[in-house]
């Protein structure tokens, strides 16, 4: 089968990600398939491919979404599917899914600009309050308010360009679990360990951008409770390829978010479960 893999130049920023893409190409070949890395020109030659794999930032406002939708309209097997992109790119939508499916999360309140209730919401959550824009990603548009003045200032800033934000209880941890799930099966696991002084995966500490450290853990070694929480969270969105971010506190697990199009870097996410490439390719080529 021929697989078109939509990539953008920033996919090659970290050598680990570029290497992972090359492993996809080689693994596909070994399996008797052809995986071609293609840029925006994929929109003009979608016909050539049997299935489409997206490895570029997915958001309904970006090219990747149209790639996914057009491929679906043509009846192709697509990872990521457009509905997963929509849900995961909108944290409000994701919150509704978590609520409906009873996924354990930090206490969360949707804020639609009713400032008369803001102080009350903060009281319910306790300071610091985490404020997230619906389209937050890679720790962008996620800020922490330590008091009401900060909360007011952050919400006003975020709501200049959107009509809703998420207010969330702050749960400090040294790391977030990142669990990879595909077609409702566990694929890989790692700990995203916060950099010193950071409170989120990508942060700015003393004016310098810092990134988390990735420590892979074999899926088989995860606790049953963690596995179940991750699978349940993934299922609340769909049956695509997801990276589930989970906090662990005293043996309890809290889902922070489900990410479609999770990063896959060679030596990072694949370290303990290198079969993930083959698993993804099987999903892309199954009929």
């Amino acid at each position: 089968m021929r697989i078109g893999c939509f990539v953008e130049s920033y996919n090659f920023k970290f050598k680990e990600e570029a290497e992972a893409l090359q492993i996809f190409v080689k693994t596909a070949k070994k399996m008797g398939h052809e995986l071609e890395l293609v840029g925006k020109e994929i929109l003009r030659k979608m016909d050539k491919y049997d299935s489409i794999f997206i490895r570029a930032t997915t958001d309904p406002l970006l090219t990747a979404f149209v790639v996914s939708r057009l491929a679906e309209e043509m009846g192709k097997n697509v990872i990521d599917d457009s509905e997963s992109i929509r849900i995961c790119s909108d944290k409000i939508s994701l919150h509704y899914k978590f609520q409906k499916n009873e996924i354990p999360t930090p206490k969360t309140i949707l804020f639609f600009g009713d400032y008369e209730n803001l102080e009350d919401y903060a009281e319910q959550l306790g300071y610091p309050v985490v404020v997230k824009k619906p389209n937050s990603r890679f720790s962008l548009y996620v800020e922490k308010a330590n008091n009401y003045e900060e909360l007011l200032s952050i919400t006003k800033k975020f709501m200049r360009k959107c009509r809703a934000v998420l207010l969330q209880e702050y749960i400090p941890t040294n790391f977030d679990w990142r669990i990879g799930v595909l077609r409702n099966k566990l694929l890989y696991a790692c700990k995203y360990v916060m950099a010193k002084g950071a409170w989120k995966i990508h942060d700015i500490v003393n004016g310098r951008r810092v990134y988390c450290d990735v420590k892979a853990v074999k899926v088989d070694n995860l606790s049953l409770k963690l596995k179940n929480v991750a699978l349940k969270a993934a299922k609340s969105v769909g049956d695509g390829l997801y990276g589930i971010d989970i906090k662990e506190v005293n043996g309890k697990f809290y889902v922070i978010e489900v990410n479609d199009n999770p990063s896959i870097g060679h030596g990072w996410e694949d370290r303990k479960n290198p079969e993930l490439y083959e698993e993804i390719l099987i999903a892309l080529t199954e009929t």
């Binding site: 929509r86 790119s89 909108d90 639609f112 009509r163």
Partner: peptide
């Protein structure tokens, strides 16, 4: 459109 009042 995505993330507008109408969408919500």
């Amino acid at each position: 459109r995505f993330l507008t009042v109408g969408y919500f």
